[in-house]
């Protein structure tokens, strides 16, 4: 059904910390690895060893240079996957009902058995979070690893999205953003997490945490390197003065 639910019991989503993402792309690989082997059609690659390789991904990491009002420029790595929007425009445009938002946990999914691959949902998403797989002909998107988070066959600590589980710097967090007491929500409150393009009215569930301002430049060695005497004295001072007269 492409009618959006009036509300969801929970709003599961990701919190992505732009301060500590190191841009290693481990989440990209973990995401592709898990989703190639599990839920739905695999994510195909085209011309992987040729001149123009390309492939389908559910999560991609951009890199930007940010110049703050004051101070030096910063490099910010920016992972982007589906934001599981509350008012998801990708869902309502779908003619087949393949795109849906689940009432129980807010996850936005594609039922690949019903998708005709018209691509309209990818146009409707302002963020570029959907990619049609050229081999399977159906729309692919982040599933929030729905086949991990409820999966009793996995050890408890693995019941979180592959990208979250793998991130070596802990820049990705998973939780219920509708519950103000969840660790994810508290992190968003403490760090002033924000929405991407909020004016477009999509009400994303995923939140981004801003890069922290760079610390004041502290030069630890400087105090140790101060000249011992400002004005040379003694023999050296006399020599210096005589030379200065020449």
């Amino acid at each position: 059904m492409t009618m959006l639910p009036a509300g969801t019991e929970r709003s599961l989503g990701l919190v992505i910390d732009l301060d500590i993402c190191v841009g290693c792309h481990a989440c990209v690989i973990a995401c592709k690895g898990w989703n190639d082997a599990a839920y739905g059609a695999p994510l195909s690659d085209r011309d992987p060893y040729g001149a123009e390789p390309e492939g389908t991904f559910l999560n991609r990491v951009h890199s930007y240079e940010v110049v703050p009002e004051e101070g030096a420029a910063q490099t910010v790595h920016f992972p982007k996957s589906c934001l599981h929007c509350e008012d998801a425009p990708c869902v309502t445009v779908c003619p087949t009902g393949a795109s849906l938002k689940r009432a129980e946990d807010g996850i936005v999914l594609v039922n690949e058995a019903a998708c005709i691959g018209c691509g309209l949902c990818a146009w409707a998403c302002p963020y570029g979070a959907r990619e049609r797989d050229p081999s399977a002909g159906v729309m692919k998107k982040c599933t929030l690893c729905v086949d991990r988070i409820y999966n009793d066959a996995l050890p408890e600590r693995d019941r979180e999205p592959a990208c979250v589980r793998t991130c070596p710097s802990n820049a990705r967090h998973f939780g219920d953003l509708a519950d103000p007491e969840s660790a994810a929500s508290r992190m968003v409150a403490a760090r002033e997490g924000f929405d991407l393009m909020p004016d477009l009215g999509t009400r994303p569930v995923n939140k981004y945490l801003p890069p922290r301002p760079k610390d004041e430049r502290v030069d630890v060695l400087a105090p140790l390197l101060e000249p011992v005497a400002e004005e040379p004295s003694g023999l050296l001072g006399w020599l210096d003065r005589q030379l200065g007269k020449l």
Partner: peptide, 15 residues
Amino acid sequence: ATGLGARVEPLERPH
């Protein structure tokens, strides 16, 4: 789009 403020330039594409 990135929430990163007024002066943002793409440095590297994701692919």
